[in-house]
């Protein structure tokens, strides 16, 4: 599912260059409310890190702390190897970011807004400013509206302009908070592709989202937030593997199969008739002895090939065998204990 190229790059640089983002016990308390609670993030260099969590789980507050906008109540954060917010001045020029949606002066044109933010960066050479602004606008497909005032922009155009702002200078780290918010499917695809190409290029990308699809398709690593705590993090594969694997056996000999599986110490949790349900209009032939039944059982530590061997040895007619991992979505619901889009 993930982008193979992106994963390859991230794996290499993660080993060689340490962590792009690292936090220890990072905590933020707003008066009585604990927004972020003891966060220990580790984002390797070159990774595309998906920062997942329902709305209100503390993702944006974490990003604000990483960028020095908000002071942590406790704990420490290091970005590109330097402590934040102390080294904001030397770190942030190397970081491009989109934080909690794009924001621009509505009375200025798109190009003027970008030039303004660029002028705020002491390390951005003014000599090349106009060219870099034009280039960034071109990159996000806004060249034709560069001179239009931002208040005439649609939400999606502002989102693109926000991305252009993050790309004004070559960056070592991109922090993108909900980058596809407000974009049409075409725009969403473009952003995904952009992230992939940046990652291929060695840029570390930290993408926060409450949309799993976005993360699943581009990320090499994920971290999951729930109610201010980081409940899981690791590579996408580790994350997936950590989920429960189940064996699905398609066989007409359901009872025999159940016996064999139980004999292997597996927990059989169900069986459903798996006839040509869709074709034949549902449970039309339940009494047919030769109809296939899918028996499911938790795989646990048993190797799948051993399961198949045992079934065959016992004469179970195995017409299909599949090992099913929990989907990321299921995994996510498991971890956060609540659906997406639920404000805690």
């Amino acid at each position: 599912m993930g982008d193979p190229g992106g994963l390859g790059v991230s794996a290499e640089s993660a080993d060689s260059a340490g962590l792009a983002i690292e936090t220890h016990g990072l905590t933020k308390r707003f008066r009585s409310q604990l927004a972020v609670d003891g966060l220990d993030l580790a984002v390797p260099h070159g990774a595309v890190f998906g920062f997942l969590g329902p709305n209100g789980s503390g993702k944006t507050t974490t990003i604000r702390m990483l960028l020095g906008l908000v002071a942590a109540t406790a704990g420490e954060a290091r970005v590109l190897g330097a402590g934040m917010p102390r080294h904001v001045d030397s770190v942030l020029p190397r970081v491009g970011a989109l934080v909690e949606g794009p924001a621009f002066s509505p009375y200025l044109s798109g190009a003027a807004n970008l030039a303004r933010f660029d002028a705020a960066d002491r390390w951005a050479p003014s000599r090349t400013r106009a060219a870099r602004v034009a280039d960034a606008l071109e990159q996000v497909g806004l060249a034709h509206v560069a001179q239009k005032k931002v208040h005439a922009y649609s939400l999606g155009m502002k989102q693109r302009l926000g991305l252009a702002n993050a790309l004004l200078m070559p960056r070592e780290l991109l922090v993108l908070d909900e980058p596809t918010n407000g974009l049409d499917p075409q725009g969403t695809r473009e952003v995904r592709s952009l992230i992939r190409s940046l990652a291929r290029d060695g840029t570390t990308v930290f993408v926060s989202s409450h949309l799993l699809a976005e993360v699943e398709q581009v990320c090499s690593h994920v971290g999951v937030m729930s109610a201010g705590r980081l409940v899981a993090q690791g590579t996408l594969d580790e994350f997936r593997d950590a989920g429960e694997a189940r064996a699905l056996v398609r066989t007409p000999d359901a009872d025999a199969a159940r016996r064999v599986l139980q004999g292997l110490g597996m927990h059989v949790d169900g069986s459903i008739s798996a006839g040509r349900v869709a074709d034949d209009g549902g449970v039309s032939r339940p009494a047919d002895a030769s109809a296939d039944v899918v028996v499911t059982a938790t795989l646990e530590t048993t190797p799948p090939e051993a399961v198949v061997a045992a079934l065959v040895a016992d004469g179970v007619r195995v017409r299909g065998f599949e090992v099913e991992r929990a989907s990321l979505e299921q995994r996510f619901v498991e971890l956060t204990g609540e659906g997406f889009d639920v404000v805690q």
Binding site: D135, E172, D201
Partner: peptide
Amino acid sequence: EGERGPEGLETSSSATRPAVSSATR
């Protein structure tokens, strides 16, 4: 930087970004 990539985000990003980033680094 000055090169105008083809229109659209996907292609232009792959055309210009790598060159820029690696150059600086």
